[in-house]
């Protein structure tokens, strides 16, 4: 059984640049020479976030005084108590999803489908592909190489970017709540197919067999 991790390694030859992602799911293939700069980048990011907090705190105290400052602290404590347990749980779910998925089988399923069902499967596969751009663009490259074309390629990559289950679990649900997360999903689950069809209509004559 091939997991996404194995598929990812298989595709390394097609995608070798930038092994990092903003969501941190593609950091397994170590790029030794880049470790130092990644470490540095992470520290710079943390310093920027800390500076944002300090500047915000200072400005809040200046504008609202001690009372406003203390109200902000209450809000922060409440947010942390509400969000951190959810986020921790969501990280656990995302980690399990990452080891349980079998992308190779899903890809074969897409190839077996025809018409609307192909769009449905491309949307589902896009939504459940964990990881950042390296994983998803590797799979996209395989789709295009196997002749699935822009319609399926764009549907898949749009579903990955806007409906990613890991993103909904880790960020949408804990931070915005289950109602808002469901609303976003309901409002948008059909839109990747629309984008795919639009791409096929506008650019279909250009045969896509690879990304570049």
């Amino acid at each position: 059984m091939k997991s996404l991790r194995l598929l990812h390694i298989e595709c390394e030859n097609t995608v070798t640049k930038q092994q990092q992602t903003d969501e941190g799911f593609d950091k397994d293939p170590p790029v030794t020479g880049k470790k130092k700069s990644r470490f540095k980048k992470r520290h710079i990011e943390m310093i920027a976030y800390a500076a944002f907090g300090v500047a915000g705190g200072g400005y809040c105290y200046y504008l609202k005084g001690a009372e406003g400052f203390s109200m902000a602290i209450d809000v922060q404590v409440e947010m942390m108590a509400g969000m951190l347990p959810r986020i921790t749980l969501a990280f656990g779910i995302a980690a399990l999803l990452w080891v349980l998925l079998d992308a190779e089988k899903l890809k074969e399923l897409i190839q077996k489908q025809r018409g609307v069902m192909q769009l449905v499967y491309a949307t589902i596969l896009g939504a459940i592909t964990p990881g950042g751009p390296t994983s998803s663009f590797s799979i996209l490259n395989l789709f295009l190489a196997s002749g699935l074309g822009y319609v399926i390629g764009i549907t898949y990559i749009t579903a990955w970017s806007m409906l990613g289950v890991q993103r909904i679990l880790i960020w949408d649900m804990p931070l915005l709540g289950i109602d808002q997360a469901s609303l976003r999903f309901l409002a948008g689950f059909w839109l990747p197919s629309l984008a795919g069809l639009l791409a096929g209509w506008l650019f279909g004559k250009q045969q896509a067999t690879s990304l570049k």
Partner: peptide
């Protein structure tokens, strides 16, 4: 990161 961002956001909500 989340903890730091929440701290910043808490102040932002007041501002």
């Amino acid at each position: 990161r989340m903890v730091l961002v929440i701290i910043g956001t808490g102040f932002l909500l007041q501002i």
